[in-house]
Structures are given as C-alpha cells and as structure tokens.
Amino acid sequence: MSFKEIPHTADVKIRAEAPTPDALFGEACAALMQVMYGDDRRGGTKKECDIIGEDQESLLCDFLSEVLYLTEVDGLVFSRADVKLDGLHLHAVLDGEPFDPARHNKGTEVKGISYSGLKISHDAKGFMLEIVFDV
C-alpha cells in the first residue's frame, strides 16, 4: 500500500506515491475505498469507466467522483483499479465485490472529492499526489 492519511482538521487528506501516473490514480482509488470501507476488500465483480478531463487534476477528481457514484449506486466495494491514462482520457477497470455490512463497516462516508490542497507532482523517484476527501 503506497498511500497514507496525513493530518487534516476537518476532512481526510491522503498522500499517495507510485512509479507511474496510471498506478498513482489506482492508489488514489484504493485510498478512497479504504477510507470508506476499511481494508477487507475483495475482487470478483468488474466495472469499467471512461473519463475525459480538462487537466490532470480535474481528471483525478472526476475519476474519484465516478468511483463514489458507482460504489454507492451499484453497492460495490472496490479492491483494485487498473487505470490507463492516455493524455486527458482515462479508462479504468475496477474490481470489487458487493457491499457486505458485516465486513465493510470500518470506514466513513465520503461526501465529495475536493480540489482543496490537491497536488499531483513527480520527481526522479516517481509520482506523488495529495488529495482531500470531504467527509
């Protein structure tokens, strides 16, 4: 797991790292699911989504907002996201399982994905993001 929660007074702030932008977006999705449901998440049911963004930040926010929508409306808890970025087009295959109130009750609802404090950057070691989930 290459994401962690960093202190934020009102909401949940996440820092994630990955060797590629594709993997970085996948980590952001895993962090969102971890905050909402805890770490006991399995695969088995696949869901795909396609997003076109105006810039990398909006692409990330729109992707995570779509994951929020899918998890709530389809009642699926995702364990993994395989993300492919092609410029400002994103294609993701999400792998998850139906929500189980006995196992997925360890988190908190996320109301929205915030631009507040959103940073995507890279250096010689790889790619990094910071993002705030409104809870």
Binding site: I6, T9, V135
Partner: peptide
C-alpha cells in the same frame, strides 16, 4: 468546529 484530525 473540529480542532483535531481524524488520524490524530
């Protein structure tokens, strides 16, 4: 109004 983060 919160004064402490959830992680703390």
């Amino acid at each position: 109004g919160r004064v402490m983060s959830r992680s703390q």
